[in-house]
Each structure stands twice: as structure tokens, then as C-alpha cells.
Design a protein around this nucleic acid. Structure first.
Lengths: 302, 302
DNA sequence: CATATCCATAAACAAAATTAATATGTTAAA
DNA sequence: TTTAACATATTAATTTTGTTTATGGATATG
């Protein structure tokens, strides 16, 4: 039984007219007539006594009318509540992000987001890349933000933005005064790098290999902050997202030098578990990061 | 939206299984899956988070679940109440009948009916044939019982039984001792008849005309009771339904004589307004008269 | 008495739900 | 890791249901 069928019956009774009920529901009078017949056949009762022009209801019809109206009321109330729920942006968003993004790129976004949606609680977890994936797969975070995203069938990946990778060195370093260098100039420098399992490290190593550049890796760290500290004391140079050094550059403790070539980009992505429910708050958050209203690319609803 | 769709969603949530919900509702798992998708698309929400095997509900899903359960409860309660209403045989039945049937044939039926359904109030109106039709057409009676029913498009006619028409005469009359006579023997008798507009009169006149029998119509009455009184005083003979004279025959004040031939039958019928609602009580009443459960032959429900 | 209105019905068509078959995914066991 | 068992999703074909259009009968109105 269609709920709409009850609605039509109610309109029919209230208007005492098949054709008016039809108009109200934007269908033809014929459809109303047939729907009422379906109703009667379904319960095997007569709801309307048609022997008179101004028809009357039977006792069964009256019973049906009362109950149907209650049902319709409840149904419409429910529909309204559900629609309203979609506009309620609240709750907690658990974000798991790699250090560099979380510390240097996310804060302004989060600030804006919290200004727009003060009822949302945003929790950010700063983690190594592999742990971000674990958080998402293990459902201990809703959204992850990573660099050089790894395609996994369980994950939905939303390309987000690209960081410019630059050479970073101490102001005392001989490369410090150049505006732009060719990657080959890094050859044989003392180099401070990310740990070998960090995607950005892998990307840089790949470029070195392609260009047949060998560097002397003097230190390895799992996060950009420690790398910067080491570069500050002129222990070597490094390649890191330029944005992560902006503060130190302003303070004059570090220098960044652009590297020629297109490859020195670091793609960032938002990741989440495929099929996972995203609350309205999460939708808004992703939309804000992407700079446009977010529509899930994965199954469920589009 | 189908109400059954809510039912399926509820079962799905309660069983936490698409396939079990399918079995419960006697449809395939595929149908459940698609119905849930319809539900989600209709409200443009996600109701179940499928990212985990033991799936969980979203907040929208929970809201929907609660409301849907209320709706289903109401719906099922209503269905039960409506079904129950059909078994409640009560109220008043207004019957309009011609004198002869109402006085001689109906009483045993009504007695039986009231024994079976003591909560029903049966009101019988004894009228001339044409007034019975008026009662039905004018809705002042629910059911009519007439002889030689006239087909009218507004009326539903249910053939009911047939009366045997017999010659009736005083025990002193010369035909009184015969067991059976030929209709021609009535020729030239003094004849007491129904009024000209009474169907039984018309039927008898037609037979006389066919057989080219002329009688001397000495009196005309609009009901069988008065005819019998006239025959009792030997004012003439008459042809009436045999059953209406049984009492007088037992008392010895009248004699009935069978007439040869098949034509001497009086078809009786129950009539009611087409499209009119018949209460359960009326259904039972008609069923009792017809000797079998009554199913309306006219439109609406069969 | 013509005309308009209203409802019922039938048939053609459109839309929706269902199934069966199959794919995909998940879990647990080998 | 592969396999087997189970659960859900997807697809396409089929069936069912609902709608409209067209029509006709009944009733009321002018």
C-alpha cells in the first residue's frame, strides 16, 4: 500500500470530490477512482457509498479515514524531521593527518570551518602517513589527509591540493642566495631526508634516481619539523613543502630556494572509507577543503 | 512511498541482515537491497553505514527507524481494526416488502436471522409493489423484496425464490374438490383480482390473454389479504400464491387447487440500489435469504 | 431537453518493483 | 595465501502496478 494512497483518500473525503482530490494530488480523476478501488479491494471493504451524488462514507471508511490521517500526519512530520536533520551540521569530526599538513596547511581551513559551524567539534590527530591509513581503515578517524595518496579499494580518495616542494637550507649555506636552482646543483650535498617509508621521501628519491643525482643522506626524520631544526643548524639541505618553512623563512632562520621543473609538487588528498556514512558536518568540511560543495563520488547517493 | 517499504527497513534494522529481512517479507534479498536504496534516494540520506560487515545505522537512519516503526504499528493496528469491523454484524436493516411476501414468507427467515444475529435490528415495511421501488430508489429502505422484479438500471436484482400460484376458492365452490385443474376451467368464473398495477395481476392477465380466457372480474384489491376475505365469502375465485392461503386452508375456510402448467410461478427478488453500501448485517441477511454466502454481483468489490 | 459535471471503466502506455543471475566483498578456515 | 561460505550490490529481463486518455453513464442545472 502506498502512503500516498492514504493521502488521496483523505483528500477525497475532505473535499468530497474525486476530481478535486485528483487536482490536489496532481493526478487525473481516473487515477483517484482506481486508487480508491485498490484501497477497497485491499481491505475488502467499501469506503465510500456511491449511490448518492454527495457521497457518504461507510463506517469502515470512517475508521480508515481516521487512522489514515494519523498515519499521514506522522509520515509528514517524519519527512520534515529527516529533511531538517540534513541541515543540522554538528557532532564531532575525527581527522587524521600527516604532521606537515596538519600543522601548516590545515589550521586556516579549520579556523574558517569553526567560524561557519561553531557547533562542530573538529578533532585532529597528527600522525605518520601509514598510521593515517590505519586510522581510516580501522575507523578511528573519519577523514584522513595524506600526501601522495595510495590507492586502496577500500578507500575513497579525493585529490585536494598540491604543495610546492622547495630546497630548504640555512641562510649561511652557499645555495641560500639563489632565487632558483636546478635540481642537479644539489648533487653531493649533505642531505637531510624523511624516513624511507614516508611518501614524500620516496617521491624525492625517485627524482634523484631519474636525474642520477647522488646526495649524502646525513640524517632521516619522520617529520618535517625535526628536518627543519637540523637544516637550521646547517647540518645539511633538504627538500620539503615550501609552505612548511614559511615561518622560519620570515624569522630568517631558514631560506627556501625554488627548484626548476614541474615535478616538485606534492599532491595531497583527503581519504575516507568507501561506503562509510558521512555526516552533514563531514560533507561540509570536505566541501570547504575542496572549495566547492562536496558530492560523494562513491556508490550510495549521488 | 510504500508502507511495506518501511516494514522492510524495520525488519532489516532489527535483524541486521538484508537476507533475513527478505525472508521475513517473502521477497528476495535483491529486492530488499533495492528498496533500501529507494528509501535512501527518496530522502536523499544514508540510512545504513555499509563500511563494516555488521552494519550500523546513521543518525538519519535511526530517526527514520523510530518514525517508521510508529507508522507501521499504527498501520497494522488499523488493518486489524478494519478487518474486525467486517465481522461486526449489527445495526438496523430497513426492509421494504410487498404484503404477501412480508406477511407469509419472510417471518421464518427473520426469525432465524434474529436468532443468529440478535444485535441486528430488522425493520420491515409492508407496502405495495411500486412503493417498495420508491423506498429503495429514495433510500428509505436498504433492501426490497418484490415479485416479478422490474429491471431498472439503478437497481441490483437478486432472484430469490418462486411462489407457486394456485386457484383459491371457497370450500363451497364447485371447483373446491378438484385436485388439479386446467386454467381453462376458470373461464367465465367470477374472478377476484389484484389491482391492475400489481405485477402479479399483470402476469395473470397475460396468461388469460394468451389462453384466450375471459373471466368476470368482480373485485380488485391491492393486497392478498383482502382478496382472501372476498374469496372466503364466495364472492368469486382468485389466483394467488399458494403459500399465502395456507393458514386459511388449514382452518378450512379456503381451498387451493393446483393449476396445470409451468407458468403459474411468481418469481421473487431482492432488490437494492446499485453502488449502495451494504453493511455486514445486510450481507448476512441476503446470504440467509439466498441460502448461501452473499457476494455482490455489482461493481465495487467481488 | 440540452448541457455540464462527476465518477467508473477500459485500454494503452509508462513507471516501478521483483526476480534471477551474477558480481563483488568479507570472513573464517585450510 | 588460497579457498569456501556467506552476505550484499548490481544488472537486465520480466512482471506488476499505476497513470493517462478516451469514453460512457448518471445526475444535476439552466
Amino acid at each position: 500500500m502506498h502512503i500516498e494512497n492514504f493521502k488521496i483518500f483523505i483528500d477525497l473525503v475532505e473535499k468530497k470530490s474525486f476530481s478535486k482530490a485528483a487536482k490536489l494530488n496532481k493526478i487525473t480523476q481516473s487515477a483517484v477512482s482506481q486508487q480508491i478501488k485498490v484501497l477497497e479491494k485491499h481491505y475488502n471493504i467499501t469506503v465510500i457509498d456511491r449511490s448518492h451524488k454527495n457521497f457518504s462514507m461507510t463506517s469502515e471508511g470512517e475508521k480508515l479515514f481516521e487512522s489514515a490521517r494519523e498515519i499521514i500526519n506522522k509520515y509528514e512530520k517524519m519527512s520534515a524531521e529527516i529533511l531538517a536533520l540534513k541541515d543540522v551540521v554538528c557532532g564531532t569530526i575525527h581527522i587524521s593527518t600527516i604532521y606537515s599538513i596538519g600543522l601548516h596547511e590545515l589550521p586556516p581551513y579549520i579556523k574558517n570551518f569553526l567560524r561557519d559551524y561553531p557547533t562542530v567539534n573538529v578533532k585532529v590527530e597528527y600522525r605518520r602517513s601509514n598510521l593515517v591509513y590505519d586510522d581510516i581503515l580501522g575507523k578511528s578517524a573519519d577523514l584522513g589527509i595524506v600526501a601522495f595518496p595510495i590507492k586502496l579499494k577500500q578507500l575513497e580518495i579525493l585529490p585536494f591540493r598540491e604543495d610546492k616542494l622547495s630546497l630548504v637550507c640555512s641562510p649561511e649555506h652557499r645555495l641560500a642566495n639563489k632565487k632558483e636552482i636546478d635540481i642537479k646543483e644539489i648533487k653531493d650535498q649533505k642531505f637531510i631526508s624523511f624516513d624511507k617509508d614516508i611518501p614524500t621521501r620516496k617521491a624525492i628519491d625517485l627524482i634523484f634516481k631519474e636525474k642520477k643525482i647522488s646526495v649524502e643522506t646525513v640524517m632521516e626524520f619522520d617529520n618535517v619539523e625535526t628536518i627543519k631544526r637540523a637544516v637550521e643548524i646547517n647540518a645539511g639541505v633538504s627538500i620539503i613543502p615550501e609552505i612548511t618553512a614559511s615561518q622560519e623563512v620570515n624569522l630568517g632562520v631558514l631560506k627556501t630556494v625554488k627548484i626548476k621543473g614541474k615535478k616538485f609538487k606534492r599532491p595531497l588528498a583527503i581519504i575516507y572509507l568507501k561506503g562509510r556514512h558521512l555526516t552533514p558536518a563531514m560533507h561540509k568540511f570536505i566541501g570547504m577543503l575542496m572549495g566547492k560543495p562536496f558530492v560523494r563520488p562513491d556508490k550510495s547517493l549521488n
